[in-house]
Design a protein around this nucleic acid. Structure first.
Lengths: 329, 329
DNA sequence: CTGAAAGCGCTTACAG
DNA sequence: CTGAAAGCGCTTACAG
């Protein structure tokens, strides 16, 4: 491999000078600059960023921790992050926890040892060990989607989105609204979205049966199963609508309803969250909430880069959302 | 930041010894090992992989170049790659060309400068500059989805899949098969899939009108537009089926057909390629071809890791595929 | 079983 | 405008 020393020798200068032209800083005579650039071209010399990073303490890499990359939400976010970091000449070191909580923690440590310049975490849960681990991180750190104490967090407005969805359903005359959520270990998707539903129902004075509430695990199949349980358990008192906290589970629920011959929305209205591509092309098209995941990714990346340039206090940002009304309601 | 020297001092040993216990090689007395591990725990010391990598010439990072991460195919592949590299304690440095050909080349160089241990490229086109760039790469290199000369390539069986789809349509009595492809700059998706269609039609003695062939750009909208053009241009001679080379474009085509009141498959059968999640939940469900993207990712990662351990000759692997028959035919 | 020394490929004061 | 020297944090023969 050719190194800076080889180039220096070939150009008859010191490696200091080569470094200067490569990084474009400090004075170098036009002559020398040209000579060096020539040689760099000819040899196809590629400087070692490991060495540079060891020396400068900056790697130009930002670490991203996601729960699963093969998910529309995550891939949109990563795409958004990438768009802005690429402009700043950063690359993404991607780690995928495959939904394993323990790995969130492992990867935080790993990314530090890899000397990334900053970390963006898409957490699926919040626990003491995670919080403790993050507290020790001295790098710029952004949490996306979960509110992590002491950490700059970009949040979706889960509570209000959920209230809005429920109210919308109620206003349209669907009084018996069922709910399919996820585990409350996930504060954002599990707890807040459920709380929005519960509060909206209560504040409007509507009762709901416990049998109308089921829990899935984000998969399409779990939405299908949850819907099945709701139908089975609600003898007599069939709900007239179901609010599902993710589009994928909503699609599963629709699948079950279709199989059983229920008409959507006449017999049962369905709403999801996520504005997945699928939500638009399914029949009937699914009413859902757009969380602007890509923009959230942009935001996260911008904030991280800002923090890399200049350390800041932890702040909280709440993203906007938009209800998309379609044919399933 | 605490370094290996700090640990050494605190433990009253040389950094050589610390290195030995950290890497678990060479003899170290049980006593000393324990003492060191203690201190490592207490201080939360995290070794610098940049330094290690500079010294050992191995980074434990593999570079992945994709055309767009927010695409089901790409995210499945990346997920597959990640599953196997993570087991080998590698991480992925992700670069997204955003469909810019020039960036494929830039990123190949960039990844080299970052001292990745190997590169997996998902190319969308094949040109001389790209081939020339790759030839100079001394790292283990795998191409996924395009046949790159001199490079180990994992290929989908585009030609035969395409022949099979066309024959299936023909056998079912759809004699007038239209085709929506992509630019032939993309040898796999553009050229081979089209060739399969053309050859199958010809070898069975079916004629097809040039107006039945349109080109899209992978987007749903482009499928919609292509379908519209086919319908508009084929006055009188309306095709009875359309073979679309990607699911997304097929969904777009279906959308147009539905809007115009054509029944699928009675008035027009539709087939895609990709086995996207959407293809299954759209109405009618879309007949498509499963390319097993995740498995392709596994394969790519396995081969790359093999090559990292031991340099090998370039080989070509053709993945299997499966026709999934559903309601759109 | 343990340590001193060299070196990986860079950058950056410092001096001229 | 240019260079010699130190140092970033590790690992690895080599010697004992």
């Amino acid at each position: 491999m050719t190194t800076i020393n080889d180039i220096a020798k070939m150009a008859n200068v010191s490696r200091t000078t080569v470094s200067r032209v490569l990084n474009n800083n400090g004075y170098v005579s036009e002559d020398v600059r040209k000579r060096i650039m020539q040689i760099v071209e000819e040899t196809g010399y590629i400087p070692s960023l490991s060495a540079k990073s060891l020396r400068t303490k900056k790697s130009g890499v930002i670490g991203v921790i996601i729960p699963r990359i093969d998910t529309e939400t995550a891939s949109r976010v990563v795409s958004g992050i990438n768009e802005v970091v690429a402009k700043g000449n950063f690359q993404i070191l991607l780690t995928d926890t495959e939904l394993d909580k323990q790995k969130e923690i492992e990867y935080i440590r790993l990314l530090q040892s890899r000397h990334v310049d900053g970390i963006i975490l898409l957490a699926t849960n919040v626990n003491d060990q995670l919080i403790a681990t993050i507290k020790d991180v001295e790098l710029p750190f952004i949490s996306l989607g979960q509110d992590l104490p002491g950490v700059t967090s970009i949040l979706y407005d889960d509570y209000h989105a959920s209230v809005d969805v429920t109210n919308m359903l109620l206003s349209k005359g669907y009084e018996k609204v069922a709910f399919i959520g996820v585990s409350e270990e996930d504060p954002s998707v599990g707890r807040l979205r459920k709380k929005g539903y519960v509060d909206a129902m209560a504040s409007r004075g509507y009762n709901f049966d416990e049998s109308w509430i089921e829990t899935g695990d984000f998969s399409i199949e779990s939405g299908y199963e949850a819907m099945k349980k709701i139908i089975k358990n609600s003898r007599g008192e069939l709900p007239s609508a179901v609010f599902v906290v993710t589009d994928r589970m909503a699609i599963g629920a629709m699948e079950y309803l279709r199989e059983q011959g229920y008409r959507i929305p006449e017999d049962m209205a369905v709403v999801g969250i996520g504005a997945s591509t699928m939500s638009r092309y399914v029949t009937p098209s699914l009413t859902t909430v757009d969380y602007f995941n890509k923009e959230a990714g942009h935001r996260a990346a911008e904030l991280l880069i800002q923090q890399i340039k200049q350390k800041k206090e932890a702040e909280k940002f709440v993203q906007t959302y938009r209800l998309i009304k379609r044919d399933s309601v």
